[in-house]
Write a protein that binds this DNA or RNA. Sequence first.
DNA 1: CTTGACCTTCCTACGGTGGGAAGGTCCATC
DNA 2: GATGGACCTTCCCACCGTAGGAAGGTCAAG
Lengths: 147, 147
Amino acid sequence: MNIGQAARASGVSAKMIRYYEQIGLVRPAERTDSNYRSFDEKNVNELRFIKRARNLGFSVEEITNLLSLWRDRARPSREVKAIAEDHVAELEGRIAEMQAMADTLRHLSGCCAGDDRPDCPILMDLAAGDPRPAGTGRRTAKGRFGG
Amino acid sequence: MNIGQAARASGVSAKMIRYYEQIGLVRPAERTDSNYRSFDEKNVNELRFIKRARNLGFSVEEITNLLSLWRDRARPSREVKAIAEDHVAELEGRIAEMQAMADTLRHLSGCCAGDDRPDCPILMDLAAGDPRPAGTGRRTAKGRFGG
DNA sequence: CTTGACCTTCCTACGGTGGGAAGGTCCATC
DNA sequence: GATGGACCTTCCCACCGTAGGAAGGTCAAG
């Protein structure tokens, strides 16, 4: 199986398969005589696993851990659950922050006439409002969902 | 006012002030004879405006527009409101996606014993679940809230 | 005059994804 | 056996916003 076929079969782009190999998320694929990567069903299953985990918002780092637990037939489910719960907590934190932003903006929008006149509570708030740090615990890394 | 003082007064780091100048979000600051940037109250107010807009999740691009509306005393509030509403819609979209992820994961976590045994519905789902694309309209750019 | 706090520019990294160039391979068709 | 096109390879660049640090200049206080 070529990288393109593996990509279509797994839903992970060829570009990303190479990237995942490069950063060590998956083991380097076998190579043919002509240096083409070669994939089997097992590889594709792993890629699908990764794809689904990404769709649930897990970072590559978290997936590294999930993958090694997946491969370990003797893993305690406790460890998997812990990763999942941590991730849920992080998601909830980010949701709460964005919810606060959206709430504030909806309120301001509601106060804004939205007509031809220049008076605008949204701009007034931006110009004079308190800093409003959008949640206290600043996220430090891992800009997920980025372009 | 030095860049450091402006940074403390506005809540925007010196690093970011230089960056905002570089990308054209703010006009290049005046310079002293020794090539130090020099800021006045007006500059600091602008930085505070930016800071608050960022805290509400606006992208630099959106802030560019907000700033020019802010400076334009004759702007129609309609335009400001439109930007705000667009942004709220985007926030809501992202919130919904993350909510779906969190819901799925909470469900799976709830099914997982989380003990020493290896049986784990979370891993089972990742290994065999359907692709579950976490919302249909893939976001394309602007990883906000990143590292 | 030294020390240390500040400033300057320039380069690097992060997360994850895509775009594209330059060159090699494989297969089918002429 | 040549040719063309679909594929592969590696390598570099971009995005967004933020931070870290190096190498060197400046300023004020001791």
